[in-house]
Amino acid sequence: MNLKGLLNSTTIADRILLFVLILLSLSGIIFIKEVLPKGHTVRIEVNGHLVYLLPIEKDRIVSVKGSVGNTIIEIKDHKVRITESPCDNKLCILQGWIEKGSIVCLPNRVIVIISSQEDELNKRVDAITG
């Protein structure tokens, strides 16, 4: 079997179809991530234990029990905030809506982290200082 024989046995339509399929699927692989919602998840941890792992796309309000009392977390329009907290300083509420990064409520030991998917993690940074 040689290359010439191979070319002779395919029609022009075959070759066009192959070319179009490869082009479409490859550009699909490259661009679909841009088109799709970012696929971030909201991790809610209490005392180092994972309590909720929620998609950021779906609006909802959840309540978690921390060391002091209940913290209420709201997810809306791809953003997250803490609406109620039993802590004294209410710094977590003051932080307002976040789209990335984390909200930490130290007194109630609640951590809310917006984490990207594992493969996206490698493209960005592994840790932030400051």
């Binding site: 399929l21 490869i22 699927s25 679909i32």
Partner: peptide, 12 residues
Amino acid sequence: LLITPVIIFLGT
């Protein structure tokens, strides 16, 4: 949707 182009590419 994420795996569709990959699968179609491999299928091609």
